[in-house]
Design a protein around this nucleic acid. Structure first.
Length: 294
DNA sequence: CTCTATGTTTAATT
DNA sequence: GAATTAAACATAGA
């Protein structure tokens, strides 16, 4: 469930279940999920504390505890939080649980993650992974100028740059694919080749995609089921290679960028190209505009 | 059996 | 050294 919108939904659920409650018991025995960390340290850090707030940056979730310590949660590919009764039996994919007392009742919040790419980390301070995140397109907003700066002038494909969590926090394969389609930009375009107008369009496309995801996922039923939510699946182009482009009807293409499958329309999404960097280039450059043909 | 998968880290190669 | 690529992780589903 690792789209930015999914993680935001998870945050809201956790907040409604945990904010203001006191943790009576916390358990996780999975060494893969607790990395770094140990079952004993996990229980010790959480038990007896109350939950002050649940925040999110990019794909990371953070519980702020009454003693100032934190618990971080990354959902990886298949992680999800659910609410169960305290006596409810452990499920196959259950990797941890946090039991709290709410209005005199015992409520059990469980972490499910079949593939175990997710993580649970307890720490007294914010962890490096959290601090290294770039601006969150939903929480922080993104200025086209600042994004242009972060993208730099390199030849890295724009899609790979968007998915770099230090550039923008929370953009994954689906979001990057969908936003680039909306912005009509070929995902293989070198990030340095995008114009200021391109970047403005891209920022709007990202925002539109996130808002729509969020609206869909929050309105559509209680996504209380294990790891699946029905609101998933209806994408413009993601995973639809060979199907007709929703804009021009030509079959959608697929390439691999940065090891990730990338669907796009080779007709609607234009490849941006720019000047070739010259060995003598330095600093300024009204002179460095050598149009590049291919 | 083969291929793919919403993510990230690390090793290998250029 | 920087930059790009492949592999690895663990599991499920088509």
């Amino acid at each position: 469930m690792p789209e930015l919108a999914d993680v935001e939904v998870a945050r809201r659920r956790l907040e409604s279940w945990l904010a203001g409650t006191t943790i009576t018991r916390a358990r996780s025995a999975d060494a893969r999920i607790l990395r770094p960390g140990s079952p004993a340290a996990f229980s010790r850090a959480l038990a007896g504390r109350s939950v002050r707030e649940v925040s999110r940056r990019g794909k990371w979730l953070r519980l702020l505890l009454s003693d100032g310590a934190r618990m971080f949660s990354h959902l990886g590919m298949t992680g999800w939080w659910v609410q169960r009764e305290c006596g409810s039996p452990k499920e196959r994919s259950e990797r941890g649980r946090i039991d709290v007392e709410r209005r005199g009742r015992c409520v059990s919040v469980r972490y499910l993650d079949s593939r175990r790419f997710g993580r649970l980390v307890v720490s007294k301070e914010d962890i490096p992974e959290w601090l290294a995140l770039g601006p969150d397109p939903l929480g922080d907003g993104v200025e086209p100028d600042q994004l242009a700066k972060r993208l730099g002038r390199n030849r890295r494909p724009i899609k790979s740059a968007l998915m770099d969590q230090a550039v923008l926090a929370g953009v994954g394969n689906i979001l990057a694919t969908e936003a680039l389609f909306r912005a009509r930009i070929d995902p293989r375009s070198p990030s340095g080749a995008l114009s200021r107008a391109d970047i403005g369009t891209l920022v709007r496309a990202l925002r539109a995609t996130i808002e729509r995801d969020l609206a869909r996922k929050t309105s559509s039923g209680p996504s209380e089921r294990g790891c699946e939510d029905e609101a998933d699946g209806d994408f413009l182009v993601y995973g639809r290679q060979g199907a007709p482009c929703p804009r021009c009807g030509r079959p959608l293409d697929r390439v691999v960028l940065g090891g990730r499958g990338t669907t796009f329309c080779g007709h609607c999404q234009i490849l941006r190209t720019r000047k070739r960097s010259s060995a003598t280039e330095h600093g300024n450059s009204a002179t460095a505009r050598i149009p590049r043909a291919r």
